[in-house]
């Protein structure tokens, strides 16, 4: 199987990473060599194997839903690239 440029552009859209033509071509090459290596898994028959979703075989513990961090709004907002002191600011989404 080969991953063509059209597929690369589709994945780039899903990933929300913009690519120029040159970068897309380079990625297509890289991904093809990586998937060639991954295809090895097809040698194995796994129809009757249960997928492993977690190595930690524990049931999730419950805890009470208590607020532990208070008054950190200012500190959190300070990390944003653009804000108006109370809210995060993003480019306009509604015309």
């Amino acid at each position: 199987m080969t991953i063509d440029l059209k597929t690369i552009k589709h994945i780039s859209k899903l990933s929300r990473i913009s690519l120029d033509e040159e970068k897309a071509k380079k990625l297509a090459g890289d991904l093809n060599s990586i998937f060639e290596f991954i295809e090895k898994l097809n040698e194995l028959k796994t129809d009757n194997v249960e997928p492993l979703t977690s190595v930690a075989e524990t049931t999730l513990k419950l805890r009470s839903d208590k607020v532990k961090s208070k008054d950190i709004r200012e500190q959190i907002i300070k990390n944003s690239p653009q804000d108006n002191q109370d809210y995060f600011v993003v480019p306009k989404v509604i015309e």
Partner: peptide, 24 residues
């Protein structure tokens, strides 16, 4: 990592363009 709440943000023409350029 979308350039909204923290970290680096690139300029974009609209929200999606901002996401895509920020991550690129």
């Amino acid at each position: 990592y979308d350039g909204v709440k923290y970290g680096f943000r690139a300029k974009g023409e609209n929200l999606i363009d901002m996401y895509e350029k920020t991550r690129s």
